[in-house]
Design a protein around this nucleic acid. Structure first.
Lengths: 253, 253
DNA sequence: CTATTACTGAGTACAACGTACCCGATTGAA
DNA sequence: TTCAATCGGGTACGTTGTACTCAGTAATAG
């Protein structure tokens, strides 16, 4: 029952680590380090993929085959480590096409889909409670990548920001509802069915009680047959529909 | 560093408690209980408002002036308690007007604003990792309330669900980015400024490096002057813009 | 009224977590 | 060679959720 909260550690330490590659490489006395921050971040991501966001620092140490406290030589604490992990996965589309060559709509759809895929692969990201935005090199890469979608337009800076955060938040919000899983769970489908079969009788009784008249009016059994991806696409599509007039009218000459 | 994860406890116990008022009231031997589940939930919400989602069970006990383990007589565990707390706050607009008397758009805007306000008052809700949707009486009340917005329309059941979950997820997603605060923090504004002033130099250097060309093109200082409420409204407004044609064409005769 | 009995509430204790601290070993610089 | 800084690892502490125990209590059966 470990809580992941990021942006809460010492900001300076997080930032130093995030931008460490830009720092000077001076040689110092003492033994050569056995690990690197990058290897630790990589291992931590692997562990989180397996164990969920409540991964333990001891698990990361074990993954690397070192003592429990060794990683604290490289990283000040768990929160800062999570900051690094989050930034690492914030680089959208390393192999994606340049958004400049796409229509604005195709571009933003691609951003949404890419982000969604990251969440599918690393659902523990959704369990992180990010208190402050941690802007590391990879996050900025991702943001710079998104901005390409607006290259051919003259949308005001502020609105560009509103649009990008909106798309990100729509995807993240939907992902959080559908993609959070119990990583300790071996058969999520079974658990899902169990859950609904346990909840079913109560719901039927509640609806039958007449207290919820409008819910009772639902008849189509397919009404609830909605995947997370469906929900995400619907929200994004309607948002882009609504955005379209503004984008078209701001197209560069 | 406590982790709040809900929907993970024994579903049956959560459901029994959620729907307890509908169960039979049989009299039993033994002393009258000193507490009630409702009082515990209320106290837990008060504590969470004060301490954040990582509130401890011991704090709840202290709030009620009872021993540490006493509340476990009423609630099987923390997860189930959180289920109850979440459901309790899921009743939208207890004093709100009936959505049936409003335009669909005004109705959905009101839903978004109400939900946003709940998050402002209880930001710890955003830190809960809900693994399964817990549908209790109050959640259903809230859902039934929202459905009124579609009374005058013939939108297919499935699309009604898509729209409502979209609105909820847009609000929740945005709230999560802007509203999560360190509850232990007494002056969040100071911390915010500190954070940006610590991050600033790194960002300036990064942008100056030329690696992020499109970000560098941002010049309007007001581009980043976006409140959470601004972001939420923009996302919701564009979504509703995009939804409008469908709603209008499905208006009942 | 009395005996029964289930249930209450407080205390103790344990496992798992993040991590502070300490130590001997190792290596580059003087 | 000497020195000092830094390495990895082990031990231990405080905090969390909560399992368990036990004596006291109050509503019911007779």
């Amino acid at each position: 029952m470990a809580t992941p909260q990021t942006g809460a550690g010492d900001p300076k330490r997080s930032l130093e680590l995030l931008w460490r590659e830009f720092g000077p490489r001076l040689s110092k006395p003492g033994p050569k380090p056995k690990l690197t921050v990058d290897r630790i971040v990589e291992a931590a991501i692997a562990v989180a993929d397996r164990e969920g966001s409540c991964f333990g620092m001891r698990s990361v140490s074990a993954e690397l085959g070192v003592g429990a406290m060794t990683i604290y030589r490289y990283v000040p604490g768990k929160r800062e480590l999570i900051d690094l992990m989050v930034d690492r996965l914030s680089k959208i589309g390393p192999g994606a096409p340049d958004l400049g060559s796409l229509d604005w709509r195709e571009g933003l759809e691609l951003v949404a889909e890419s982000t969604w895929e990251v969440y599918v692969e690393h659902p523990w990201l959704l369990e992180i409670n990010q208190k402050r935005p941690v802007l590391g090199p990879d996050s900025l890469d991702g943001y710079d990548f998104v901005l390409a979608a607006f290259d051919a337009h003259d949308l005001p800076d502020r609105e560009v920001n509103l649009v990008t955060t909106a798309v990100m938040n729509i995807v993240t919000g939907t992902a959080r509802q559908y993609l959070i899983r119990d990583s300790a769970d071996e058969q999520p489908e079974t658990a899902e069915e169990e859950w609904w079969s346990a909840q079913g009788p109560y719901l039927e009784r509640a609806v039958a009680s007449g207290r919820y008249r409008r819910i009772a009016r639902f008849t189509d059994p397919e009404a609830w047959d909605i995947t997370g991806h469906d929900a995400m696409r619907y929200a994004v599509d309607r948002f882009l529909d609504g955005l379209a007039p503004r984008m078209e009218s701001s197209r560069r000459a």
